[in-house]
Structure formats: structure tokens, C-alpha cells
């Protein structure tokens, strides 16, 4: 039977998360930054599913009918729901922004303070 340490998934998730952070920090295009945020959300999702699986495996060895780990997967589901809503509003804001300043460069966003 194949055994994959949960650490691998942690490292994968952290790497994706860090890439997302670097993206947010280096890019100036609002849409790309937005996509990087989606990337970070997905990194978290992987971690949740991995932990769900890990606990389920541990519990299954003792009890064959266990449903431990269901909550984590539902949590991922809700994250997706919220992300979808967030994308809708976020993209609408970006469209609005583009309409007003004809750019999606976040450095121009500091005009909001005036």
C-alpha cells in the first residue's frame, strides 16, 4: 500500500501559498493579483483535504464505519462558495475601476484616498 506522509502535502500547499504571496507582491495588475489570491485559497484547500484524509485514515483503522473528516471537506466546499462570491464582486469592482481610471494598475488605487 502506498504511504504518503502528510508533510508532503503541507510542503506542496505552503509552496503554492508562498508563490501566491510573491505574485501578489510583485505584480501590479489587479486581475493577476486576484488570481494569486485564488491560488492561495486553493493551497489552503489542499491542506484541509489532506488533513481530513489523514484523520480519516487514522480513525478508519479502528472503526470501519467512521465518517471523521467530513467536516473538513465541507469546509472546503464553503470556501469555494465564498470564493465564487468574492470573485463576482471583486471582478465587478475591477471592471468599475477600469471604467473610471482606464487601468487596472493597483498603484493607481491610492487615488481612492483623495
Amino acid at each position: 500500500m502506498p504511504i504518503i506522509p502528510v508533510n508532503y502535502y503541507i510542503f506542496l500547499s505552503l509552496a503554492l501559498f508562498a508563490i501566491g504571496i510573491v505574485g501578489v507582491l510583485t505584480r501590479r495588475n489587479a486581475i493577476i493579483i486576484f488570481m494569486c489570491i485564488e491560488l492561495m485559497l486553493n493551497a489552503v484547500n489542499i491542506l484541509l483535504v489532506a488533513f481530513s484524509k489523514m484523520h480519516h485514515v487514522a480513525a478508519y483503522a479502528l472503526d470501519k464505519t467512521t465518517t471523521v473528516g467530513t467536516e473538513a471537506q465541507l469546509f472546503v466546499f464553503f470556501i469555494m462558495v465564498v470564493a465564487a462570491a468574492e470573485v463576482t464582486v471583486g471582478l465587478a469592482i475591477i471592471v468599475m475601476l477600469y471604467r473610471n481610471i482606464h487601468s487596472v494598475d493597483i498603484n493607481f488605487l491610492n487615488r481612492l484616498k483623495h
Partner: peptide, 14 residues
């Protein structure tokens, strides 16, 4: 610190 540059906010946060 309150430059209005979102990039710098994220950097500080990180």
C-alpha cells in the same frame, strides 16, 4: 505607512 499603495500593505503584512 499609510501610503495608499496596496502593495506596501501586503508587504508589511507578510
Amino acid at each position: 505607512l499609510q501610503s495608499g499603495q496596496t502593495g506596501s500593505y501586503v508587504l508589511i503584512m507578510t
